[in-house]
């Protein structure tokens, strides 16, 4: 199949697809260069709820004790209780159905993959990227274990982490991820959703 100039124009507008058959991108020639697989891997830090981008490595709560003490406790407190400098990571579970809901990690965060993603991309401040993948698995396990979400001995890795169900996973509207994108279908109106 050849892509006519009309189709190319439509593709540029996102109205039609000119697919893989074309070595060159439609419309604007050779602008941009193709990244290597390694470049994509190096740039892509995003971990979705299915965890399909999670790298190899593994860790347990026990393995994180020293890392937590060395790299996290200064801001988050020796027991993850939080401080003026950084939020609470462990404990603080209270009610959500009040005007003063308890929005802690254990009580509120819907996905364990987010814990991994955020530690990996943002922690510790000024030393982002210094933790190995196994360190991040271990720290995630440490936080989840200390919050009584997983058992002490559980090994977290690319296969097990996405299966961890966070206590507040069902606490969001809409519940199904497929339903989030359409404000209209959700009954949102004038900046407010039900």
């Amino acid at each position: 199949m050849r892509c006519s100039s009309l189709l190319s124009a439509l593709a540029v507008l996102g109205l039609a697809e000119c697919s893989v058959a074309f070595a060159q991108a439609p419309g604007y020639g050779n602008l941009g260069r193709a990244p290597s697989r390694e470049e994509i891997q190096a740039w892509n830090q995003s971990i979705g709820p299915q965890g399909k981008e999670l790298p190899p490595g593994s860790g347990t709560a026990k393995q994180a004790e020293e890392i937590f003490a060395a790299k996290c406790a200064a801001c988050h407190g020796p027991n993850g209780e939080g401080s003026q400098a950084a939020p609470r990571l462990i404990g603080g579970r209270g009610a959500l159905n009040t005007p003063t809901p308890s929005r802690t990690l254990a009580n509120y965060w819907p996905f364990a993959t987010t814990v991994w993603d955020y530690i990996n991309r943002a922690m510790p401040p000024k030393q982002e990227g210094s933790l190995s993948a196994s360190d991040v698995y271990a720290l995630t396990a440490f936080i989840l274990y200390r919050n009584e979400i997983i058992p002490e001995g559980q090994v977290l890795d690319a296969a097990s982490l996405p299966k961890v169900k966070m206590p507040n996973r069902d606490g969001f509207i809409p519940d199904r991820l497929e339903d989030i994108h359409s404000l209209r279908a959700r009954g949102c109106n004038a900046g407010h959703c039900p």
Binding site: G48, P49, N97, R103, P110, D117, G171, F172, C193, P194
Partner: peptide, 20 residues
């Protein structure tokens, strides 16, 4: 992708405990 801000900081809690 449920990044940190969008899944943990920006939802608005309702009084029934659910969050928009």
């Amino acid at each position: 992708y449920m990044a940190m801000m969008e899944s943990t900081k920006y939802p608005s809690p309702r009084l029934d405990g659910k969050s928009r």
